[in-house]
Design a protein around this nucleic acid. Structure first.
Length: 558
RNA sequence: GCGCCUGUAGCUCAGUCGGAUAGAGCAACCGCCUUCUAAGCGGUAGGCCGCAGGUUCGAUUCCUGCCAGGCGCACCA
């Protein structure tokens, strides 16, 4: 049975086979057999296509020498047709070289799966709430938000590819003192008065105030609080619409825009308080209502309702979490800025107070700061002062693809520096071009193939002809895509997809320079030309699928 | 004081359950375009993987301590 028919990748088949061999040898090994193992791709190609160190790992428990265990594996795999050679190396590594013909399975899989190649079922049936950005609707989205706009969206795509049912959600902080300060700042700007000291000072406030007055001139006739509220509410609507528009253009789409204010509609908060109370972790002290999060490892208990009767921010956090769970989400992912990392403990404790498993139901990702350099100097960020780099400005400077790609290709827990000058340059200092160029290059080759009548496709794989070292590397790299996507989903690390796609692009470029795809001059078209063109089309598919997961375009021409 | 994150090549950074000779791009130097996109490819050079212990057959990876940098520790939002 071929890999395509079984819908299992060749690695999966072989690792399953090794596990079976080990289980069959249970009596000799006399130790617990692991339920899964992954085959590594050795860096050194003398070590075959795949390698495992399982024999070394089991040596101690079984009391057998690693080499002895390796020999058992070798003997058990020998009969397989899809394996050309099994070698035992060093202290007990098992190196496996695939049969040429079996390598074709990867290409067949890619061509038959098309856009869904790389998708898996690791998270099938799991409903995930993915909350990110969640900016105050009091100003434009800045660079920190932009990192999440790119990474959060990509993570959503990756989780979906792994089978999860993903809902991207933007939590709108539309109540509380920040909103009131926003209203007061807009009012002051419209009336030509000095802004409140602790208000918003960016230049956008003037523009927004002007826009509000032109939409609703009567607002100037209002007085006092009524006028502040009118500015606040209209300003909120305009600013939210502005954020939504910018995000759509950025390719980041939210299924749900969740209003914090709505948590207090229809007594929802009271309901949440009851839910938590019933679980036994709510108490009163000094006239305030608390959640005893210290029962579950938080460093202090948290106030929900203050002694003056107003709602603490944590009241919203609690109600919002309850809402997510009651809406049926199994896993709630929070993507927060580094300045909010202190939230992790209380969010996990909150889940525990609700009777959930904080390690499973809550997943907090902390994103470190983004700095931006331009002209060799750091552009300082200060939202209040208004000298900010916004998402829009960044996109104007470097374009959506470069912005998204660069933000995604680093793990979020490392601080990153974006150099605008580099991102503007169209060289391979700029990895997004390197990858996109590989895709465009392949598309060019395939256009030419069509022009001169070289056929390619699933029935023209000819794996036994693809014996060149570069071809082997390329096929091997293509086969890694599904595992990369699954790992990225499981670890919540979409940057792995970006790194993978860079690696794949590099392997392709090397293949391209060493292996002529199309006939040269008056050379007669052969099966090898078709085989290589087919390999090219599979590669283009995988690069496109990878870029799709990042929300970055895969151009056919550059 | 407590907590989270980070420390890998001159620079920017990869390196999932511990594996074989630690990688990429840039910067430096040397090569490759009369035929598929040179936005590309090949080569040279560049490393106490922060420091010190520990666990292990084996540690950049896990544990402890220390040093350095960033961030946070409200009845603020």
């Amino acid at each position: 049975m071929s890999a395509a028919q079984s819908n299992l990748s060749i690695q999966d088949e072989i690792s399953a086979a090794i596990l079976q061999v080990l289980r069959d040898a249970q009596s000799q090994l006399n130790c617990e057999i692991p339920t899964s193992l992954t085959l590594d791709r050795p860096k050194n190609r003398d070590h075959g296509d795949y390698a495992t160190s399982i024999a070394l790992a089991l040596a101690k428990a079984s009391g057998l020498s690693p080499r002895k265990i390796a020999e058992i594996i070798e003997a058990g795999l020998k009969a397989r047709e899809d394996i050309a050679a099994v070698e035992i190396a060093g202290p007990g590594f098992v190196n496996i070289t695939l049969a040429k013909s079996s390598q074709g399975g990867v290409i067949a899989n890619i061509l038959s799966a098309g856009k869904t190649f790389g998708h898996g079922n690791k998270l099938t049936g799991i409903a995930i709430n993915l909350e990110f950005i969640s900016a105050n609707p009091t100003g434009p989205l800045h660079l920190g938000h932009t990192r999440w706009a790119a990474v959060g969206d990509a993570l959503g795509r990756v989780l979906s590819a792994a089978g999860a049912k993903v809902t991207r959600e933007f939590y709108i902080n539309d109540r509380g003192v920040q909103m009131d300060k926003f209203g007061a700042s807009l009012q002051a700007a419209a009336l030509g008065q000095p802004r409140p000291e602790d208000g918003y000072h960016g230049a956008y406030i003037d523009d927004l105030a002007t826009e509000i007055v032109s939409i609703n001139p009567d607002i100037l006739k209002l007085t006092g609080e009524e006028q502040v509220f009118a500015f606040r509410d209209l300003g909120y609507r305009l600013q939210l619409a502005q954020q939504q528009g910018v995000l759509e253009k950025f390719g980041t789409h939210f299924e749900v825009w969740f209003s914090e204010k709505s948590l207090y509609d229809n007594n929802f908060f009271a309901h949440c308080q009851e839910v938590l109370k019933a679980k036994g972790h709510v108490f009163e002290l000094d006239g305030a209502i608390w959640l005893r999060t210290t029962d579950f490892g938080d460093d202090k208990d948290r106030v929900m309702v203050k002694s003056d009767g107003s709602m603490a921010y944590f009241a919203s956090d609690s109600a919002y979490y309850i809402s997510k769970r009651e809406r049926g989400f199994d896993i709630c992912i929070y993507m927060l800025g580094a300045d909010h990392h202190g939230y992790t403990g209380r969010l996990k404790a909150l889940a525990a107070c609700n009777g959930d498993d904080p390690e499973y139901n809550v997943d907090v990702l902390i994103g470190q700061m983004v700095k931006i350099m331009e002209g060799g100097e750091e552009v300082k960020l200060s939202k209040r002062a208004g000298t900010i780099i916004t998402l829009e400005e960044l996109v104007e400077k470097v374009g959506v693809d470069a912005a998204r790609y660069t933000l995604i290709r680093y793990p979020v827990d490392t601080p990153m520096v974006m150099d605008v000058d580099i991102l503007r340059s169209r060289t391979n200092e700029n990895p997004v071009y390197y990858v996109q160029y590989a895709h465009a290059r392949i598309c060019g080759v395939l256009r030419n193939a069509a022009d001169i009548g070289i056929k390619y496709g699933a029935e023209l794989i000819y794996p036994e002809l693809l014996v060149h070292e570069r071809e082997r590397e390329l096929i091997g790299a293509l086969g890694e895509f599904p595992r990369t996507v699954a790992g990225a989903a499981e670890l919540r690390e979409p940057h792995r997809v970006a790194r993978y796609v860079e690696e794949l692009a590099g392997v392709y470029h090397r293949f391209y320079s060493d292996c002529r795809v199309l006939p040269l001059g008056d050379e007669t078209p052969s099966e090898l030309h078709s085989a290589r063109a087919t390999l090219c089309s599979a590669t283009a598919q995988v690069i496109a699928n990878g870029l799709e997961l990042l929300g970055v375009s895969a151009p056919e021409k550059m």
